[in-house]
Design a protein around this nucleic acid. Sequence first.
DNA 1: CTGAAAGCGCTAACAC
DNA 2: GTGTTAGCGCTTTCAG
Lengths: 339, 339
Amino acid sequence: MAGRQAVTTRDIADQLGISISTVGRALSDDPRISRETRFRVKEKAAELGYVGNLAARLIRGAPSTVVGLIVPDVRNSFYSTAAHALAQTMAQHGYQVMLSETDDHEDNELAQVKGLAAAQVAGVIIVPTPNPRAGTVRLLRTMPHVQFLRQQDKLGDHWFGVDDRQVLRQATEHLVSLGHRRIAYLGGPPGRSTSTRRLEGFTGVLGADADPELIIHTPPSSIEDARRAVGTVLSSPRRPTAIVTASVRITEGLLQELTARGMDVPREMSVVGFGDEPGFSWWGGGLTTMALPVHEVATSCAMWLLQRLRDTGNDAPYNSRAAGYLVTRGSTDVPRSGA
Amino acid sequence: MAGRQAVTTRDIADQLGISISTVGRALSDDPRISRETRFRVKEKAAELGYVGNLAARLIRGAPSTVVGLIVPDVRNSFYSTAAHALAQTMAQHGYQVMLSETDDHEDNELAQVKGLAAAQVAGVIIVPTPNPRAGTVRLLRTMPHVQFLRQQDKLGDHWFGVDDRQVLRQATEHLVSLGHRRIAYLGGPPGRSTSTRRLEGFTGVLGADADPELIIHTPPSSIEDARRAVGTVLSSPRRPTAIVTASVRITEGLLQELTARGMDVPREMSVVGFGDEPGFSWWGGGLTTMALPVHEVATSCAMWLLQRLRDTGNDAPYNSRAAGYLVTRGSTDVPRSGA
DNA sequence: CTGAAAGCGCTAACAC
DNA sequence: GTGTTAGCGCTTTCAG
């Protein structure tokens, strides 16, 4: 690399033989500065490759132009979609995005929130861990923030997500309407707000027909555990005629396992997935699945935060719960033998 | 939100009736400060929820703890993988990651680089656009940076990527070894360094057998264009017995189109994909494809940058070209009729 | 062992 | 129309 030292307003002032404040004013198009001086300053700035020092502005009390995004893992398509929507929306409005991952560990979460606070971010969008540390809660209270997808009461009442209950309700209703009664549910363990509500959506529809033995909780991001769970379900004496899943990774595990076992879908087993990833459409005869408007939700979330940053007073609770929609493809059919 | 105002060292000093510098020293474990004072200061700091102001440190010349990542679009699995590897590695070493997207547009790229420069980032990892603006080049020269995946000579000689030529060579050799001669190539337009080298890998193996009519360039991130290209290839009078692709999205488009047409793979057509996305393993009888060690490459890239930030002197050229490997599944077989 | 003071780059009040 | 000055939060001399 070459010129380590960044050029400052002082450099410009010195080279032009004028004062630093004149330079500052010229650069910010202050009307008091003569057209000519303004021109000379800007020309020199361009020539030297001047780039303002945000840190210096920040310290003077200028509003920060950075927002933080805290997610478990960007590789998860929900979160990469969110990161994209956020980066896009924020860039359009002159903001920058700081990316933090928690790996769903509360200590990482706290460390990241501290980092963002130290960096003076203007606001934060967070997918909280199941049980945030007290420090995390306290720190977040000092900065504008919104929760995305997951919801944690202690973290305040600003939330953008999908209607998890509705999503699983609709998935389950679809199977029930086809005649299924013995349906297995593969989801994340309760504790995460999303998992809890998804399970509620499922049991809400199935009522007394819900068989506790066919409700299996696995770590929602482990494909391996999901595959094992599928094995358990299939070898159950009360083997189901259909399976619904409540996480993208679990869905992927399910598809892998069913493929490996050469299961005949939908003849032997109907399947409804969660989310609509690229490969889902060509799995077998196409996977029937619940598509989620993640991009839209993330964009709304970003827009709301922007608005919130402008209007520092407004702090009214805000909740947005977007609906998912069923994409019917080839993986669901009526049960072979009446359940 | 509550306490807008962040607490400063001054607040701590005032409340304890000591000087600001003592507080600063205590917080940084300066041995000159008595054990007791140090303790009182830290306790007070914790009580008030003190978080150092990075901007203030920065302006004093402290090294920045932020690195920038510039990618076309994080939703692309290559880049989300990179973002994850980077975030993870950097967090481990006390750095933070600023995420910038270019959407492959050079003006966005310039704007993002400017933003990162203004934010005083310590370094940058960039997937450059095909033709960076002069300003981008000039600005990048002033900060430590590494190129990731794509390579652009003007941007310097630090690069981490995969051996694109080798990847397409191996893919093509696999088909040739099965007996294919009439092979179509679906890749991005030359101009991007990666596309050029991938095409070279293909033509290098096929030599005189390469049929210009069967080499089709489409925007590497457009599934739609890829699908159309597949149509073109299939209706060609010199219809190929096999197809290789040179981008993930194009591969996805190909799979969709072949599925839609009910093509019998590998009997009617052999196919080798690019990258190994989750769904590829269950497409048809499994997609034979070139897997790429993106995570490993990204991690090395991050580690190298860290090292580079420490050792400010070292600026020797560094190139790393990781090999991809063939994953043989069910989508390739010997040609039905001798080519 | 602790305090006072300077200064990083920038802006805004206050001169002239 | 332009210059001077002060001060943001922090570290780092230089004095005690």
